[in-house]
Amino acid sequence: MKKIYCNIKKCLGCGSCEIACAVEHSRSKKLDSAISENPLPIKRRKAEFIEEGISVSTGCQHCDNAACVAACMSGAMYKEAKTGLTQHSRDKCVGCWMCIMSCPFGAITREKLEKQVVKCDLCPDRNKPACVEACPTKALSLGTFKEFKQLCNM
């Protein structure tokens, strides 16, 4: 399964991924207009400085046994058979926040007014997720775990 990995050794916690993510998930998909949209677009990643030498960008891990899927009482959160990704159906979501309660990575965010949640969807309209493309140090990558390990020489 391909997903987004972060190499902590390269991450600066600069937040470029967050901005790219929010813009990609905005209505206009352009930074200058996205910042004045109402409601503001919601990012699905978090980049931060943790302590000296540690910065990280995190988001949905598309877990094998996804706790959010088990907790979802409306069937909105599901595993996509073909790709193994954890996907979310807006048509089915009722905004019960059970997935937020269950996600060990805190990777799910409320869209309060819509009573929906949002999470990483790997940017279905793009070849490469916006955050990966925007990362100035190439800390973020899209691929399998094997590919990520090779990339990190581990």
Partner: peptide
């Protein structure tokens, strides 16, 4: 958030066995 817990997850010897924790 999760990032803040990463150092202690790295250090944990008994918990966080799932692959996804290890990957992060």
């Amino acid at each position: 958030d999760y990032g803040k817990a990463i150092p202690l997850i790295k250090k944990s010897k008994t918990g966080f066995k799932e692959q996804e924790f290890k990957e992060t």
